[in-house]
């Protein structure tokens, strides 16, 4: 009786581990899909162009666009 009980418990634990593993694999897959999806949207600026829509994080500053007719206080060209 004790042996059967222990066997059932072992089977249950193994099943839970397998389920957790599958869930983790799926989660990684979804995350990877979301990550690559960030790279494919397109927009244009002053002619043809493309862009990703990756969100900024606290690792990077969040820029905003100037309004129409907005002029610069400084210029970043190449130099």
């Amino acid at each position: 009786m004790d042996r059967d009980k222990a066997l059932r418990r072992t089977t249950a634990i193994t099943g839970a581990l397998v389920a957790a593993s599958v869930a983790g694999t799926l989660a990684v897959g979804v995350a990877a899909h979301a990550s690559s999806a960030d790279e494919i949207s397109t927009t244009t600026e002053a002619g043809s162009g493309s862009s990703d829509s990756g969100t900024t994080t606290s690792d990077w500053p969040q820029l905003s666009g100037g309004g129409s007719g907005d002029s610069g206080q400084a210029t970043t060209g190449g130099s």
Binding site: E45, A46, G47, G49, P61, Q62, L63, S64, G65, G66, D70, S71, G72, Q73, A74, T75, T76, G77, G78
Partner: peptide, 18 residues
């Protein structure tokens, strides 16, 4: 406000830096 443009006639935009 920063004008982002390399040479005159190049594509340009204005961005706002925090």
């Amino acid at each position: 406000r920063v004008l982002v443009q390399d040479r005159p006639g190049d594509p340009s935009c204005v961005v706002r830096l925090p």
